[in-house]
């Protein structure tokens, strides 16, 4: 009973936002890339590099906002690798994404030694401002991520640009016939996903803490990917999935279960993703006509 009460306690739910922030940002990034037709499994690596770039910017300028800028630029640089190699050289996107992830984990530790002369954890740097609600810290980037969800939704479903990107992802040949420059839009979309995944990294290093730790993305890029899939590539639904996964992470950190080992709770997002993709949930839930009013004589 105590455990149950703890599961719906306010601090726990509020801290889900904190854990969900990088997932939301990176999942939105993933949506940009994939809506345009480029699979981005490099979110993990881009996020990691963004986290490093944020600390570097904050340390060099003493201004955490410059750290955010560095993170976005760093994210764009990494995303540019994906864009160039997969669009210009037509290389396998999955393979390149994996390459970027290896690259990120190598180069962040390498640069940590060049710039800070340490191998594991960077020195503390100025962090982004935060606001406490009921004792739980909310970094500025948490608010940014919450604002970006409706913005990205609006972009994709209410603007010409969003429609173009979606049409490219669905049927590039048709889009091309209509005079849309497929590759240019793909390029821009992939770079945009770099900006967002970079921001996610900034949250990890200078939003939620004030240092870079090696491998600090710790699979969150892949959870973001899972959230995007679970959310069916829709910004608002992906947000919901990211919140669910953030909640799972908060539970794993804060709640002790007598019956489920806490080590396994962290695997929930991954299991859920497979289950959803296999259609165990969405195919069995709700008949096709649910939500539609029945009108006599209507076909």
């Amino acid at each position: 009973m105590d455990t149950l009460l703890e599961l719906i306690s306010l601090p726990l739910i509020l801290s889900s936002f904190r854990f969900a922030t990088p997932l939301i940002l990176a999942a939105l990034g993933g949506i940009f890339s994939e809506k345009s037709g480029v699979i981005n499994i490099a979110l993990e690596g881009i996020m990691l590099f963004g986290a490093f770039a944020a600390v570097l910017g904050s340390a060099q300028t003493g201004n955490p906002w410059m750290g955010v800028l560095y993170a976005m630029v760093g994210g764009v640089l990494f995303a540019a690798i994906l864009a160039i190699v997969s669009i210009v050289f037509r290389a396998d996107q999955i393979v390149i994404g994996t390459g970027i992830n290896i690259f990120a984990s190598g180069i962040t530790i390498f640069l940590l030694q060049i710039f800070f002369n340490v191998k594991g954890t960077s020195p503390l740097v100025p962090r982004l401002p935060f606001m406490r609600i009921f004792g739980v810290r909310f970094s500025v980037l948490t608010y940014v991520s919450l604002i970006l969800v409706p913005v990205v939704y609006y972009f994709f479903y209410k603007t010409h640009w969003g429609l173009r990107i979606r049409s490219i992802g669905e049927h590039p040949a048709a889009a091309d016939t209509l005079g849309i420059n497929v590759n240019r839009w793909r390029f821009l979309s992939v770079l945009m996903s770099g900006v967002l995944a970079g921001l996610a990294g900034a949250h990890l290093s200078i939003g939620d803490g004030s240092a870079f730790v090696r491998e600090m993305s710790a699979g969150r890029g892949f959870i973001a990917l899972a959230a995007m899939i679970f959310g069916k590539w829709h910004p608002v639904k992906a947000f919901g999935a990211a919140m669910l996964f953030g909640y799972a992470e908060a539970v794993a950190v804060r709640v002790d279960f007598a019956f489920i080992p806490s080590e396994l709770i962290s695997a929930i997002p991954y299991v859920v993703t497979i289950v959803v993709l296999a259609g165990f949930i969405s195919k069995s839930v709700g008949p096709a006509a649910s939500g539609e009013a029945y009108v006599k004589g209507d076909r």
Partner: peptide
């Protein structure tokens, strides 16, 4: 690690 990642980029490209 960096060289290994670069090998991936170049082979794929």
């Amino acid at each position: 690690n960096i060289i290994q990642a670069l090998v991936i980029f170049f082979v794929a490209s």
